[in-house]
Amino acid sequence: MSKFKFGLRQVKQLALLMNLDLTSQELSQFAKEMPQTLSAIANLNELDTQNIMPTYQTTGIVNRFQDEQINERNLDKKAIFKNAARTHHDYFQIKGLKYSK
């Protein structure tokens, strides 16, 4: 497995990808922990996987499609909005999106 140098910058990038606001304490803790975890799982390199196909699911089911139909478990509007923090005229309301950082 390739060597990865973990620094605060890399951890911040991953936090951004995961949309997580981490505290500086969490950032430094993960920066310390993640290389330890990666070295603990490095033993996978001992197994030869040349010419081995990956398995993403174990059922063997291929391309299962569903007919277009009315789903009898469809929820009504009231049920759909029941747990929402903020709604506005049958819409979920969110904060404005920020692109900068």
Binding site: M1, S2, F4, L14, L17, M18, M34, L44, N45, L47, T49, I52, M53, P54, T55, Y56
Partner: peptide
């Protein structure tokens, strides 16, 4: 997020799925 990210996917996630086989 790390094991799935570009540059590390093959070394971690893909490798793991091959070992699953």
């Amino acid at each position: 997020a790390f094991t799935l990210s570009v540059g590390y996917y093959d070394a971690y996630y893909l490798k793991a799925q091959k070992i699953r086989t």
